[in-house]
Design a protein around this nucleic acid. Structure first.
Lengths: 333, 333
DNA sequence: CTGAAAGCGCTTACAG
DNA sequence: CTGAAAGCGCTTACAG
């Protein structure tokens, strides 16, 4: 392996002079030496050792992407897209993204310490351990979709409540009055809860209260669905708190013999790439995942550049994307 | 930051004794010291510095996941799933996965050298630079889906040819005789080419030659599709070299007014989670992505454990998954 | 079972 | 503009 010392020896200078050239402190080195050293570096294919740098400078140039769960979470397009974008942007900043799947809180601090990480971006819900994570790690920490009551947190989230409101208003506008919500009720993240809250608030306001049976878990059973969509006062439209769930639901309704959107309408949340390709294409509340990733990375590097940068909570907007999965009901029925 | 030295001082022993405990060389330390030291480590929350370790031991415990392209490739479920599984397995082995998006060859060697990486797994096509990458990096390197003629490469791939054969045989068995193939013809990877070769070989054997118009690019135009599926001798079945393309194609056919599978049949390749959820659900050639990731990681650690382990080329099998997107044609038509 | 010494490849801080 | 010295936090290799 080629080291600073090798280059210095070949150039007939000290390692410090080479170090300055490597680090672009060109104003401190004579032009003659710059030329000579750069040529040798090129020729020998010298690459600085990051572990040596990390050890002596106390900056590792590593950013941890901490994701709650295990490798399976990348099966969800939302997570995959976030990790891809975040990783790519980190790399463009000259840093290296390290992936860490967190199952328990302990491991996170260990990982960040062991690698002397310069910062971390969190995907998933860490609300329970947020304070501990923050007090144990005095580096920039960016959270996403965090609904913790703690204020001193830098977070980039979504207007989930508004998304729920928009979904409900849209369905009501289309003439649907008997609605249902799909999304894990046991969800620990605030995200689903906020979407439901927004949705329910509009229903209540319009005089249509959501009963307990109209708030369905992640994977409702076929019989439960059938009951819900039959009878004298059937549910005619669903709000699924994720496109992924909307697509599953679509399939289930199809299996039960209901046509979407003629018999049952569905509106989703996320706007995944697939959502526009399936038939019927999915009407949904769109979030801009690329913008979210970009915002998180920007925030991170702003805090790396300035350790005193204030905690910020950035809430991104959502948007209704009208497609084919919601039908209009006759005005009075 | 707590260091070995701090622990040693508090325990009244040398750093070496602490180091031995930290590294589990317990047979070399007295029980009394083990107890005492472990207690102090626990209490102080000591975590070894990986950069110091990497610098002194010449093993970084980092594995690079090198993916061709940029962050966008995680929008493809195949890549996302592979990266998730590989990353997770690396972590379970006590190593840390570092993500690297490679656009040009140069960067790869630099990255691997800079971080003194212990091994790397490659996603995508690096055939052109394979030899250089291998000769520049004397560490275990695992490739995936590589069709390079170079033999000294450790690779885990798929029986893509057989997949093509199975798709063609299935469509013929269902009575389809006028077939078409969808998949980027300019694809540099051998993968698509092999799938096409297998597919075409069966067609030819059965006396149905694929004309140039029947080999479609990634995103065929609507008019081209329409022409193909109309006229006196229309194409009645498509083989898409990826489920993602099959789903797009399904949408396009729908827009043209063709019903799948009544008017046009489609068989895909991959078996993504979505493929079973859409309507009609997709008949496809399945590959086991989890097994592929597992095989790659196993191979990697076998080579890390034994630097002399021979190059291996492991080819995983594929499987036909019958669902709803292919119809039976009357025997003679 | 224990430890003193040297070194991994850099950077920081200083002196000139 | 240049460099000698010290140190980052470990491990290797050796001596006892």
């Amino acid at each position: 392996m080629v080291t600073l010392k090798d280059i210095a020896a070949e150039a007939g200078v000290s390692v410090m002079t080479v170090s300055r050239v490597v680090n672009g402190q060109l104003s401190k080195v004579s032009d003659a030496n710059i030329q000579k050293i750069q040529k040798i570096i090129e020729k020998r294919g010298y690459v600085p050792s990051q572990s040596a740098r990390s050890l002596s400078s106390r900056s590792s140039k590593i950013i941890a992407i901490v994701a709650q769960g295990d490798g399976d979470i990348l099966e969800y397009p939302y997570n995959a897209s976030m990790i891809g974008q975040i990783g790519s942007l980190i790399q463009k900043h000259g840093y290296s993204p390290m992936l860490y799947f967190a199952s328990e809180y302990q491991g996170i601090t260990k990982k960040l310490h062991a690698w002397n990480v310069d910062g971390a971006i969190f995907l998933g819900t860490f609300d329970e351990n947020l304070e501990k994570i923050q007090s144990d790690n005095k580096i920039p920490l960016i959270f996403t979709d965090c609904y913790s009551p703690i204020r001193q947190i830098t977070n980039v989230g979504l207007d989930d409540f508004k998304g729920g409101v928009m979904a409900a208003r849209y369905l009501l506008k289309k003439g649907h009055t008997n609605l249902a919500f799909v999304g894990s009720s046991t969800d620990i993240s605030g995200v689903v809860r906020q979407r439901l809250k927004g949705f329910a608030s509009v229903c209540t306001e319009a005089g249509y209260r959501l009963s307990a049976e109209q708030v369905l878990p992640d994977a409702p059973t076929l019989p439960a669905l059938k009951t819900l969509c039959s009878g004298s006062h059937p549910v005619t439209a669903f709000f699924a708190s994720a496109d992924r769930l909307a697509i599953t639901l679509m399939r289930q309704l199809h299996e039960l013999g209901f046509r979407v959107p003629q018999d049952c309408s569905i509106i989703g949340f996320d706007d995944l790439p697939t959502s526009s390709y399936i038939t019927p294409s999915l009407t949904t509340i769109r979030q801009d995942i690329h913008l979210k990733a970009e915002t998180a990375v920007d925030l991170l590097f702003r805090h790396i550049a300035n350790a005193k940068a204030p905690a910020e909570n950035i809430i991104l907007d959502v948007q209704l994307i009208e497609r084919e999965s919601v039908s209009s009901l006759p005005p009075d029925r």
